[in-house]
Design a protein around this nucleic acid. Structure first.
Length: 259
DNA sequence: CGGATTTGACCAGCGC
DNA sequence: GCGCTGGTCAAATCCG
């Protein structure tokens, strides 16, 4: 039990794990996410935010919220940046000012300019392989041992104009679990048709982030849970229910961590 | 030979 | 201010 709590804490997936464990706290299960179109546009609108400057300008409040990691305290290799607080204004300023220049600025950050972060979306899967096929082509650009995550791998979409990145790491406490974190939106369709792992494809699919119908027509059983850094913490617990699929995937002992 | 991966170095942000 | 940490770069290497 403590291990699981620690796991959740380590990966800043506390909301996610809380849901797994109790089903009552303010986070969402993956299937709830899939059903979210029933609850109006807010969720998907928020997810949409990332790379389009005009969207940011039109909905600054939403953007600001979605660009921050909400309710994820301290630590964590995943949520190491922008947990709200005194830097919010500065972040917003950078976001509006830099736009597509962000990537170029990565290495030559000017003084007082903070690195821009796209909204991130993470989920956990149980898989033998670290890098799950999701229909897009990725190039690995780094791997470095970090606290609580021995070998996180950093991938970037190989499409030239696409700034999407993802980080893949094994759970420190449960090596059979892979934590995948996507950052940004694909600006192009998937170059690969075959998607052996529909759930991962789902999460990396632009249609998913933009609320496209196709995304919701697919079965999504592989992820054992997910965490949307942008929004999950903002959703009412009343949306939480049914952990049937989760139980199919995760050992019941894990789902009922506290018992 | 071209593209992908590895890996050490570098840098910015953050906490103390 | 300094050290630690996470994230990225880029040269070297690998592989098909």
């Amino acid at each position: 039990m403590e291990d699981l709590i620690q796991l959740a804490s380590n990966y800043s997936l506390s909301g996610l794990m809380d849901y797994s464990a109790e089903g009552e706290k303010s986070s969402l299960g993956f299937m709830e996410l899939l059903n979210m179109q029933d609850f109006g546009p807010s969720f998907l609108d928020i997810l949409q935010v990332p790379s389009e400057p005009f969207v940011q300008t039109q909905t600054p409040t939403v953007f600001q919220e979605s660009s921050e990691v909400v309710n994820i305290p301290n630590d964590s290799s995943i949520s190491s940046e922008s947990c709200g607080g005194p830097n919010d204004e500065q972040n917003k300023e950078v976001l509006y000012g830099e736009g597509e220049e962000e990537q170029k600025a990565k290495k030559q950050l000017k003084p007082n300019k903070k690195r821009l972060r796209e909204p991130r979306f993470a989920f956990m899967t149980r898989s033998e392989v670290d890098h799950l096929e999701d229909g897009y082509r990725w190039r690995k650009y780094g791997q470095k041992t970090v606290k609580n995550s021995p070998f996180p791998s950093y991938y970037r979409c190989t499409t030239a104009s696409c700034n999407v990145k993802k980080r893949v790491e094994r759970s420190y406490h449960d090596p059979s679990t892979v934590v995948t974190t996507y950052e940004g939106q694909h600006t192009h369709p998937s170059p690969v048709i075959a998607r052996p792992n529909p759930a991962v494809a789902l999460a990396s699919d632009p249609a998913f982030f933009s609320g496209g119908a196709t995304a919701f027509s697919r079965p999504a059983q592989t992820p054992i849970s997910y965490y949307n850094y942008s929004t999950a913490a903002n959703y009412p617990s009343t949306l939480l229910r049914d952990i049937g699929l989760l139980q199919d995937i995760m050992p019941s002992s894990i789902i009922r961590k506290e018992e």
